[in-house]
Design a protein around this nucleic acid. Structure first.
Lengths: 197, 197
DNA sequence: TAGTTCATGTAATGAGTTACATGATTAT
DNA sequence: ATAATCATGTAACTCATTACATGAACTA
């Protein structure tokens, strides 16, 4: 079972809103799905090229005077079908592979202080992510399509509940990990006590 | 910054308990760190080979009569140092890349029923994982080194609190996702109502 | 004038997964 | 008899990351 390239679905999903350049796709991805999905230029450009060969997208070059030319990609009917087929199919789960947990598992071989540092770090990272996600959430709740071009208000309004769910995932995810960090730190302090007694 | 091979640390961590074959490493990994870390034979064997060249491990061939020969690997002083250095260093975080969330983000383009199915599936998967982890947890709590060879009781007893923390992580992780599924399903039912009115 | 953003891409690298290949032994 | 387990490995693949390369325009 050959693992399918998922970058293409993220790209097609973006192009399904409106035609864009590879650069746009990267920027918009970062600000919309960036909290749970990452893409690099080094992957976006080659995939766009391939998808054009396969007839999933078309491309238009826009010469911007002296500015560098923009290659604007548009999703085709075939591309939209391909995208929708994927969308209805079952998602592959990301398998957990956390280096922190691997180190923690072997925790007996180093000083508890180092473990504590790791957990504090992780907890702080989660806090930063949570703060970030709360801002996105607030933004999604307050802004009801004010600054959008008129014909796209419908599309964007219809997407918002789903976008919120992904943000909600992130919030619970990082809150959960932070709580675990705190609980583990508490456990560690018990171990320390036990050793000193 | 070249991403470091992490398989080697998992392997060294196992060999740090006792000498083992590649086959043993796979089996023991599956049953100890398997809930947050996966390794394949196709990776373990080549990495062992490389680590032997680098002097991180040594190898002994044990001929088991007519049985296939076992290649038993032992960690060296150099290997142990390498392992401990990694253990004290800061872990790389796994970046989130959840196909379910990507599909959910684009949820407006398919029927809410399909989304509901996806969420139910995910919830069921989490339940299965939780059940599994609760058994591991119970096992870790009841068994206090009864069936272990005497000289290793100390090592294994000292590891247990850390092993429990990784199990606790898994429990909270899957419980968190399951709660999110339920909350999202509830939200979806609200959207449905709104559309029908 | 120096740094950031706009905008495109290629090349190198590697890490990990999957499929393939072999063959004996043990349990059902 | 057949399936699962013990036991080792190679080859293909591909997905994704990082570094490299270029150059204009805008901003502080």
């Amino acid at each position: 079972m050959a693992r399918t390239n998922k970058t293409q679905y993220a790209i097609l999903g973006m192009l399904n809103y409106q035609p864009m350049s590879g650069y746009d796709i990267k920027k918009i991805s970062d600000h919309s799905i960036g909290h749970f999905w990452n893409e690099n230029y080094g992957n976006i450009y080659p995939v766009l090229k391939r998808m054009m060969r396969e007839g999933l997208v078309t491309m238009d070059i826009q010469q911007g005077g002296s500015a560098p030319p923009r290659k604007v990609y548009t999703i085709t009917a075939k591309g939209r079908q391909f995208f929708l087929d994927w969308l209805a199919g079952s998602p592959e789960r990301q398998i957990l592979r956390e280096e922190l947990l691997l180190q923690l598992f072997f925790g007996q071989w180093i000083s508890p202080n180092i473990i504590e540092d790791k957990l504090h770090n992780e907890s702080a990272f989660c806090s930063a992510m949570i703060k970030n996600l709360q801002q996105i959430k607030a933004h999604l709740e307050e802004d009801h399509g004010k600054n959008l071009p008129e014909q796209s208000v419908g599309t964007f309004a219809a997407g918002r509940p789903y976008w919120k769910m992904t943000v909600e995932f992130g919030l619970r995810y990082y809150q959960g990990i932070r709580e675990w960090c705190d609980a583990s730190l508490h456990e560690l302090s018990q171990i320390d006590k036990g050793e000193k007694r």
